[in-house]
Nucleic acid binder design. Structure first.
Lengths: 198, 198
DNA sequence: TGCGTTACCGAACAATGTGTCTGGAAACAT
DNA sequence: ATGTTTCCAGACACATTGTTCGGTAACGCA
């Protein structure tokens, strides 16, 4: 009773139409009619599912984050011991799979609201990961965990944007992770080839 | 001839109205009339200055970036030798001064377009800085300079967002820079208190 | 298979916002 | 003081929004 094929079909069509059109023209430039037209759905039907464009976008983003969270959970617990980069790798795979949606979210379409949802979700995961590691190993970090999480997520988002905006993947996901990890763990002196001063 | 008091006044009023209103309600939710009303300017006058909301926002952002660029120039040449963090510090000061505008830009208002302008401007500066240092010191980086710049800017933006969204500054600018620098240069093992494995 | 339910359609609606264009009043630089 | 430029107030056609309606078609289930 909770599952009507018609509902799934319309929602899916609207979702796909949104993603495609935002990618082409940008979120603000779209009218509800543009979306329903591409989705081949009556405009009135749109409003029986969503209050407006923003709610549709928010819903699509929310679904994506739920999916990501589910994929991240095992990776996070698995990497609880050291810095394995497993969660990042899993995220990259997810991004490759849902590339178009990742692109529009990471671009900040929708006044950056979906992007904020994304970064905050990631920051939560990262902060939790850090805190867990600290407790288990009984070391106290020299830097506030929330700030550290923000920095880490900032790096990830930045690289994700770069990775996902290339038509052909500029390098395999595994390599991106390795680089990101090297950079984060060993620091910039290593990355730039400098020797670290005393 | 290029200076008419009336023009400056209306432009300034529209600018301030935009920033204030975006901060309160978000960019998309605003109508041109909302803006002109708060600015106490006729709607027709708005269109004699800007094509639409977006052009106004883009112009405001552009001005901000020009200002930032001017402030950054001496800091960049000064820090050409090592990683001093001078440019970041200068940016934080600028952000404190233009806090509201920084907030809405960093939030990704306007479908993230102003934010993209901002990050790209910063990335240009950073990449130039890196390249200059590599040449001067004749070392070849282990990681592509552009990608490295992206990551570095990603961290900055992320921290900036965090810093600028707190009502009271959570920590002085100098301390933020020190942390960011420590983190970037010494790496995460240092930051979290772990010893680095072999 | 048939039946009751539910989602979809297409059209209409008022309300709001957009972008452009007037003529006249006011402020400007010189 | 004067000629120029900007601002204002109002009107305009047009697009978009969000809601409502009765009729039609697809649905889940017995």
């Amino acid at each position: 009773m909770a599952e009507d094929r018609r509902i799934r079909k319309t929602r899916r069509a609207l979702r796909d139409a949104l993603v495609g059109l935002v990618l082409e023209r940008g979120f603000t430039a779209l009218s509800v009619e543009d979306i329903t037209q591409r989705a081949d759905v009556a405009r009135a039907t749109f409003y029986s599912h969503f209050r407006d464009k923003d709610e549709l976008f928010a819903r699509v983003t929310r679904d994506l984050l739920d999916e990501l969270d589910e994929r991240l959970r095992p990776a996070v617990t698995e990497s609880a011991v050291g810095f394995t980069g497993k969660p990042v790798l899993e995220m990259l795979r997810h991004a490759r799979q849902e590339r178009d949606l990742y692109r529009i979210v990471l671009r900040g379409e929708g006044d950056g609201k979906p992007l904020r949802m994304f970064t905050e979700a990631c920051a939560r995961v990262a902060a939790e990961e850090f805190r867990g590691r600290s407790e288990r190993n009984d070391v106290k970090p020299r830097i506030d965990a929330d700030l550290l999480a923000r920095v880490w997520v900032g790096e990830q988002v930045s690289v994700l944007q770069w990775w996902v905006e290339h038509e052909a993947p500029p390098m395999p996901a595994e390599e991106v992770v390795r680089m990101l990890l090297d950079l984060a763990l060993r620091g910039r002196y290593w990355a730039t080839g400098f020797d670290r001063p005393a």
